[in-house]
Design a binder for these strands. Structure first.
Lengths: 230, 230
DNA sequence: GGAATAGTGTCTTTCAGACACTATCTG
DNA sequence: CAGATAGTGTCTGAAAGACACTATTCC
């Protein structure tokens, strides 16, 4: 099997559908997808890069964030593999396969990023019906479906817990948490059912006096502050 | 970007966890995983091959079936991407990433295959606690989890329908269909609940006389024969 | 007190799980 | 008729969805 070296190999691209929730913690958060303008061909596309010299997908994705998106991720990123695009001539420059990934990031990590976060509409399409180049529309749709599936409330079978991708900084109120889930899935949730199902996965923030810390309410009764349990 | 050619590229392996249900239609079908003996290093492993010269994953998988497994798939195969293995030195011969796939096949397609179909125990491990080489234990576990998830009965949220991978040839009785699902998931199902949930996805086989065709019972009352609806 | 939001009690509907009964075949 | 399997009716419990009420804050 030393003829392994003799055969041509594909370039392996790592394309990233970077998703975030803007204004998490605010009254009207929004799910957004980062797209970048590019030329040759002209249009908008997702950031991506090629696997180089014994690097991993996570390292390559990290490099894409630093070099092409212009941000400096504070923690280890967790790209989620969606599918492989392997049509033999999908890239007319060379033989390239693409490993499409979803990459959820908190809005704070995207400060100063190159590109535009485009709002994702409730039906899963992009605001303004924007079309992406190459097969990136499919990647975007798969990424949105992936994150939505994990933010749905389906306690009986899938028990993902509160804000699994960490869009919302701790501590938070149940209202803030619910708004984030609603922003991701694009539909409204009942506050009572939502609280009932989230509470087992949350622990209240306790102050020095042993009392539960409350949010400083703008209007109405202050709410208890929580963080993710365990 | 014409320097695209200058960088080294990884070999891309397609590893296949080939799953089948033996004796589907019989009273005691079993979920099995095809493993192959190999040398250097000695042990058992999953079949696989490398992406060559502008081929797709499906084509490569098809070639693996023909050349390494020694079978001739009768229809287009549908490998299910599980995950990428990308540790830089996981293969000590060269830089290689592996795209691990599950590939469900009806037993008839595996006639004459090289390798052993090893029984999958209810807990998901292999009979005899066999250990596979390389990272193939993880691939096997992921493949088993993938197929089990799709054969579970969870009508409310996931509505996959009867025997989505076609392990069981049509037409079949509800008992045969249930035995196949039980073999895949490793647990028993109630016949009444199972029938209630499968019936909407099935249509009875109707004979020339307009009557529902019945199985030729060995013992007891003959059962109606069905095929997948639509 | 009034407006606003937090938090809880409970009713209804749905459905998975379980049990039991009837139906129809063979020998 | 006995044995075996097919097929259906129905009860129960859990949980999602929905509604309503009470609680606590600011103004």
């Amino acid at each position: 099997m030393s003829d392994l070296e003799k055969f041509p190999r594909p370039a392996v691209a790592v394309d990233l559908a970077i998703l975030t929730v803007t204004a998490a913690g605010d009254t009207d958060p929004e799910l957004r997808l980062l797209v970048q303008d590019r030329t040759d061909p002209d249009g908008i596309a997702l950031p991506g890069g090629f696997l180089r010299e014994r690097t991993t997908v996570a390292e390559t994705a990290d490099g894409v964030l630093r070099r092409k998106v212009g941000i400096d991720p504070s923690a280890t990123i967790r790209p989620r593999l969606l599918r492989l695009f392997d049509a033999p001539h999908r890239d007319d420059r060379t033989w390239a396969v693409s490993a499409a990934h979803a990459l959820p990031l908190p809005e704070a990590e995207l400060a100063g990023a190159r590109g535009r976060p485009v709002r994702v509409l409730p039906d899963g399409r992009l605001e303004g019906a924007e079309r992406l180049l190459f097969d990136h529309d499919e990647i975007a749709a798969a990424a949105i479906a992936d994150v939505r599936e994990r933010y749905e409330i389906r306690l009986r079978y899938v028990d993902v817990g509160p804000d699994p991708d960490g869009f919302l900084p701790e501590p938070f109120t149940l209202l803030q948490l619910r708004r984030v889930h609603e922003a991701v899935i694009g539909t409204e949730l009942h506050k009572d059912n939502f609280a009932r199902r989230m509470r087992p996965h949350l622990e209240p923030v306790v102050g020095d006096d042993g009392e539960v810390v409350l949010s400083t309410a703008q209007r109405g009764r202050p709410a208890a502050l929580y963080r993710r349990a365990r």
